[in-house]
Design a protein around this nucleic acid. Structure first.
Length: 606
DNA sequence: ATAGGGTTAG
């Protein structure tokens, strides 16, 4: 370093390669001693070096020593603020320059930095102003300026405007293409994103790792693991560096779509993982119903010394709702409240958890605390009422929702119709189904038909339900037929029931409950050959599949009950209580339907 | 030599 002391032009290189704060301080000292700052050399590089280390205070201090800062010196200071994540300060500095032309003339870097700050703040208005100013100064078609403008539009949900700018660009590079790809992914248009990539390849441009992240996300959104896999292979073949972000997006793509082994394999081999990588895996487990694995991963993450972020905790909440772990769910909720700001997404997840764990009151209390509810928060609360058999509450909440600016979607109606059905509100159900189609212009899907068929069939309108199915535009699936079938059973329409049962069996259901219903229909019709046949299928399935069970949490302890399961330590007491309850219910004139149930079950429980 | 695009959740 001593030999460099008197050669100020070498400082530039030195500053660029300098590693730590201490080295930088020494170089700074040398620069001061050599008198380089007083000379014609701009302190921009020194400021930039401090910016790279995130030391804005030092960057500012150096800036203040400069008497006539050039635009690069200004830019260096702006970068320092940008690095620190202070977009408001970036804009403040930009405005200072814009307001006083005598200071220094903003260049492409200045505009780019300012536009990026606007994207951070989602400030379209400021962005437009900057864009116009940039155009005036001759930067209208600058690739950097345009790319940051594209990004601003994309972040503000203005893909139409982004497309306009993009199409007018005379030159595009990998960044501008990638901005469009990512923009479409985030806009929920993965097919458009893929289309962009194809166009890019047609123009002879190769994508890099960041572009691949966009494609991996698009594959994940489409549930197209084959495509995701080929993107993965492409990166390996082209020796694109698989950094944390790329690998995390791969873990997410595989995990989300049920390929948890693959996801875990990649995850385990990641040389460096961060909180986001862990969260991606945890959410993958939770989304695939592997609640236990999700929770044990959360614990493992903490054992590795990492603090779970909100995403990991929301996934853990999801796991709790699947397992009915009210106590754990509550404590995670408290943990979230202590550490994070009140936030809509996590609140909605917690509402769902409380509801699924049986605590409807807590769910509603939290719903009332959300000040700006969105579609999903409304849908979740309406579905909660439905699941608890509170059709009235679901309907009145739905009416309240209609007073807001948020329009119900197909999920809202699926929840509403199911709520009305479970409460036996036949007329209301038919009424809202009708309005959904006519007024809200929502095309009924499988779920809606299943709800309405269930509702009609339950109320004894089996033929009407059958007619509705025949009038369906989409191919009726298992759910619809099962709804009708169960109506047939309840109303002793066994001739039709057997015909429907046949249809259901032909669709190869994957659900033991469906076979059980089919078997009951045949049993009611005394078609014993068929009963034996179906039970055989069930038996072979039972070996492969985990049968459904109910869970209840008592004092933080989970108790699971399977069909015909006597393994619980307090089985005797429980059976005794069940008998008592059955007796009480009969006294209140409730007549349980046991006539179709298998004999062994009948003897055991009733 | 300064600047633009990237990972997880209801």
């Amino acid at each position: 370093m001593r030999s460099l002391q008197y050669r100020p032009s070498s400082f530039k290189q030195l500053l660029f390669s300098c590693g730590g704060a201490q080295t930088l301080a020494r170089i700074h000292a040398l620069i001061v001693i050599s008198g380089a700052l007083a000379g014609p050399h701009s302190p921009g590089h020194l400021i930039a070096a401090y910016a790279r280390l995130g030391d804005v205070a030092a960057a500012r201090a150096v800036f203040r020593t400069s008497s006539n800062p050039t635009i690069s010196t200004w830019n260096a200071l702006i970068v320092a603020n940008s690095r620190l994540g202070s977009p408001a300060d970036v804009l403040r500095l930009y405005r200072l320059l814009a307001a006083r032309p005598g200071l220094a003339r903003p260049d492409s870097s200045t505009f780019t930095l300012a536009l990026r700050a606007c994207a951070h703040l989602s400030d379209l208005e400021a962005g437009e102003e900057i864009k116009n100013r940039a155009a005036d100064l001759g930067y209208r078609y600058d690739v950097f300026v345009c790319s940051s403008l594209l990004n601003l539009y994309a972040k503000c949900g203005k893909m139409d405007d982004a497309v306009k700018v993009f199409d007018e660009m005379p030159k595009r590079d990998v960044v501008s293409w990638t901005t469009m790809i990512t923009g479409f992914v985030n806009a929920g248009e993965p097919l458009e994103a893929i289309g962009m990539y194809k166009r890019m390849r047609l123009e002879g441009m190769e994508g890099d790792g960041i572009a691949m992240v966009g494609l991996v996300q698009a594959s994940a959104a489409l549930g197209d693991v084959r495509m995701g896999c080929s993107v993965h292979g492409y990166m390996v073949r082209r020796e694109i560096n698989l950094d944390v972000l790329v690998e995390t997006s791969l873990v997410d793509m595989y995990a989300k779509n049920g390929f948890l082994d693959t996801a875990l394999f990649i995850f385990n081999r990641m040389p460096y993982k961060n909180v986001v990588s862990w969260s991606a895996l945890i959410s993958g487990y939770a989304q695939n119903g592997l609640a236990g694995d999700a929770l044990s991963m959360l614990i493992k993450m903490q054992d590795c010394g990492l603090e779970p972020d909100l995403v990991a905790l929301v996934s853990a909440i999801l796991a709790c709702s699947q397992m009915g772990c009210l106590k754990l769910g509550k404590s995670i909720h408290c943990f979230i409240q202590r550490r994070f700001e009140f936030e809509r997404i996590s609140a909605t997840a917690v509402i769902d958890m409380y509801s699924k764990c049986g605590s409807l009151i807590s769910a509603r209390a939290l719903f009332d605390r959300i000040s700006s509810r969105d579609l999903i928060s409304w849908n979740t609360m309406i579905a909660s009422y439905g699941a608890h058999g509170c059709g009235k509450h679901a309907l009145s909440l739905f009416r309240e929702m209609n007073k807001t600016k948020i329009n119900p979607d197909q999920a809202t109606f699926a929840s509403l119709l199911s709520a009305l059905g479970h409460s036996g509100f036949v007329e209301e159900g038919r009424y809202w189904f009708d309005r959904m189609v006519r007024e809200y212009r929502i095309k009924p899907g499988e779920k809606h038909y299943a709800c309405i068929v269930d509702l009609l069939a339950r109320a004894g309108h089996v033929d009407k339900a059958h007619e509705l199915i025949k009038s369906m535009v989409i191919e009726p699936g298992i759910a619809v037929w099962v709804a009708l079938l169960s109506g047939c059973l309840n109303h002793k329409r066994l001739e039709l029931g057997q015909y429907i049962a046949e249809k259901v069996l032909n669709l190869n259901p994957d659900d033991l409950g469906v076979y059980s219903l089919v078997s009951n229909v045949y049993a009611a019709a005394k078609n014993w050959d068929k009963v034996i046949e179906v039970r055989k299928v069930m038996k072979s399935m039972g070996m492969r599949k985990v049968p459904g069970y109910s869970l209840v949490e008592v004092c933080g302890q989970l108790h699971a009950f399977l069909m015909e399961d006597k393994s619980h330590p307090h089985y005797e007491k429980i059976a005794e209580m069940l008998q008592k309850l059955g007796f009480e219910m009969r006294k209140m004139s409730y007549v349980p339907k046991t006539e179709f149930v298998f004999h062994d079950l009948e003897e055991d429980v009733m």
